[in-house]
Structure formats: C-alpha cells, structure tokens
Design a protein around this nucleic acid. Sequence first.
DNA 1: TAAGTGATGCAT
DNA 2: TGCATCACTTAA
Length: 204
Amino acid sequence: MPTLSPTPLPRSFYEPSAKIVAPKLLGHLLLRRTPGGGWAGGVIVETEAYLANDPACHGFRRETLRNRSMYGPPGRAYVYFIYGNYFCFNAVCAPERVAEAVLIRAIEPTFGEEWMRMNRPVREQRDRTSGPAKLCLALDIRREHDARDLCDVNTGLIIAHNEHRRRFINQHKPVITTTRIGISVAEDLPLRFYLEKSAFVSKR
DNA sequence: TAAGTGATGCAT
DNA sequence: TGCATCACTTAA
C-alpha cells in the first residue's frame, strides 16, 4: 500500500478536461502531511467532474474571489467553504484560464488512520471519509489549502501515484459512471465516477 | 426528512 | 447594501 516517500502525479496529468481526469484519479492517493511529519490519507474511490461549460461548475459564470484557483494552472487545489460549516477539496484541471476541477468525494483511509480518527472521531470507520466534507475534516483540509500545489511534495498536500492502483481497481471494480450529487442544475450529466465495491462511496 | 450554518455573489 | 443560495452532514 504505501509509499513512505510518495511521488506526486505530474502536472501534465491534470492538463486534460476534468471529465477525462476524474475517472483516472480513482485508485490514486490523496495525502496530507501530518504535524508529526508523516502522511495521512488514502485511496480515492469517488470523484465528480465540473466543467468550464457546465452550469453546475463554480467557475461557469466568471472568475471571483472564491473560484480564483480554478482559473489558475492545473494541478493545484481548489478548496471552498459550503453550508456555513464545511470545506470541499478539488483538483484543478485544464489549462490556465479554463475553470475545471475534480471534486474528491471519498477516499479509503490507508495512512495516518490514528491522526484522522483524532480529527474526526466517529464510531464507524467507514463514516470517516465517505463524503467530500468528511474527508476534509479527517484530513484537516481548510481554507489555507486553497490554491496549494498538489504536484510539489513540499507543500504537504498532494495527490500521489499509487503503485498498487491496478490491483486496487481490480479488487474494487467496476467503475460506475453516474450523475452528480447535490446539484440543482445540469443534473443529468454523467460526471460522477466511483468504484462499486468500495465501502467508502458516499451515496448509492 | 429537516434543520443548521455563514460566506458568497448577484441583484438592487 | 441586502438576501437567496449552497458540489453537506447529522440527528431524527
């Protein structure tokens, strides 16, 4: 499973449209450096794509203070605050000035589980990271992580190559493609992707 | 199933 | 300046 010295996915990985990148992120690793100096996080099992010509995308209308990082270069974080309580984490895709991103909706915890349990002490392990705001709580991802470079291991928030990705996907396939959750426009687009056999998928 | 939560951004 | 909206979660 693990990599003590993780290798971030390269920036070129995020240059295509989010609709291409979203399914390709399944099986890779969302990782956060802990105060203790180790890594916490796990395998991405559910994603959604938000596109430049997509009314549900925060960057659909124009650049604002909130969505600024979506308009920046690919391979950075877009973290936004929602419902007065929660943060959600995205990986910015597509070239600069093209506002696209992939929302990470769920991960399977594999590293730093003790630290995540402290951050989000719920009874059931599968409730720890089975939702976009849940995983931000477990990994203590906040406003200050917005715009952070996911390709630079020194920023402490990365998406890393999973050398066991193929095996993980084989064990958790098939990949299901369906409509996105919690939106009120463009509800019919097939832009949500998840691994059918993962217990951490937020909703079926 | 519904309420809580407050920043955001569009309309005024 | 005001106010509806919101890529969610939790407790019922």
